[in-house]
Amino acid sequence: MDGLLAVPPIGDDNLLKQRKALVASKALKINPLFALHPNFKTFSKMLANEEASIIHATSFPYTGRSHFEGQNVLQGGLLNPFSSKTGWLGRAMGIAKITGKAMSLQAPLIIKGATDYDNFYPEHLRNARLPSAEVLKLIQDTHEGSIARAIDKLRRSSKSMRGRRGSARDPLSLASEAGRSLREVDGPKVAVITIPQFDDHAEIGSDTGHHPELFTLIDNAFDNLRNNLQEQWANTIVLTMTEFGRTVKENGSAGTDHGYGSVGLLAGGLIKRSSVIANWPGLSTGELYEKRDLYATIDYRSVCAACIEAAFGLDHDVIAEAVFQDKNIPRAYTHIFG
């Protein structure tokens, strides 16, 4: 995601020197340094209501510009891409013994490592019907051990999916379904949703266009999650993640290319005080990473670690060593949830 378009640092004099066109004309001013793209309507109200925060100039510790490697570091949570077959969220869920649900056909790497999770991704097969709970119970009774447990899980999923035939696979429908599942007493406690297509090398848009449309999509996903979580919103933290940011300057096609630092958006009732958290590195050419990218001065793993600490109740040192395998990750909890 282009973090400078989403949360432009309007107080930095170098912003308009570096970017001639890719700044929203009516950005919502947050404080003297930062503003918010106007398409984040719901999120801006969450900020005003002290239930959202922004982390800027941040990234996972990956400075290459490969989507495949970047997404693997984002999900694996380790310093080297493809060095783990489990994800940081899954490892944390495993330690905390927490259940989860991936809103996708295949479980993404990030959730692997958890001992109890499943998927939700609605299929629409012609003339297909969900097996009744009674039939599944009969099948379950003829098995034992792990197979019986798997059928039991299928039976419970089948029950929870009844009456939701209209479910669709788009991110907003999945966000609504995630909210409904998360609020159930015996439902999952973690959900992962993917919103693709932020790779706008051309015609990224500023006030309108593709990236601003994606901002609206993210904003509506926050809204759907909150509306469907209902009272459980108070016990929830939602965080966005991106594998890397975009170049500070626009390219010749009115787009931006693969960069480094970007922005993270956090919302949920677990946040008690809204703020923008950043060690702002500056935007003059000399202050950019390789003279082209926003420097990431906050390791986003520390933000993820703080969210795990808040939501799962794990100790920071345990998260740092067992989940991210790096005891030097700074503790950001007090800044986000303090």
Binding site: I30, F34, S44, A48, S274, S275, T334, H335
Partner: peptide, 17 residues
């Protein structure tokens, strides 16, 4: 040390941005 790991910029967006 934990309290100064990051610079925090307070939000003053107002109730009706």
């Amino acid at each position: 040390l934990e309290s100064v790991n990051f610079k925090v910029y307070p939000v003053s967006i107002g109730k009706n941005p």
